[in-house]
Amino acid sequence: MTNYSVEALELNKSFGRRLIFNDLQFRFDKSGVYGISGPNGSGKSTLVKIIAGILGASKGKIVHKMNDQEIAEERLHDHIGFVSPYLVLYEEFSTYENLKLFAEIRGVKFNKERVDYLLNKFLLYKRKDDLLKTYSSGMKQRVKFIFALMHSPQLIILDEPTSNLDDEGKNSVYELVREEGQKNIVLIASNEKNDLELCNDIVYLEKYKN
């Protein structure tokens, strides 16, 4: 059970004259896995960016609450974990250096036990001191999951989470999504049938085009 909730209130996003979605409403207040689906260009990545507070909405708003208290926008990053193919970590640092830097910039204690657990889970422990630029794209995608989960966020946003991953990597992600979905809100934006099969509820963006 989670004490976190995320709610979209009459959300509208346009880029110039091009309407992406209109009057979008949803509320996720129970732990579980939720999906955002739609054809290419329907605004899945745009929506997850708005939810994460990276992008502004044209109209309406997203409300994040913890224990029924609205979370201020500048504190949002403490509660959110985000994974996407367009997320890039610092290639001139090793995985361990990246994760330590992120903890310091977030202003939280570097939780070594949790990081080591995640490194083992994603089969990266032995390569933790190698520079990120020496990793394959699949390995980089796995590091992004550790980045997203290292601070134990209440809302985990996964945009196309299984892109670049092999079967072993996909299985690790699915296992993790089920595990996190027991206690937190996991939001998956994807078109992959296997990804969406994990979801308790799905928002179909093509319904919000008018």
Binding site: G53, I54, H77, L87, Y90, E91, F102
Partner: peptide, 10 residues
């Protein structure tokens, strides 16, 4: 380098 998004998230 595309790392601006990472900074926005932390």
């Amino acid at each position: 380098r595309g790392t601006a998004l990472t900074l926005q998230l932390i």
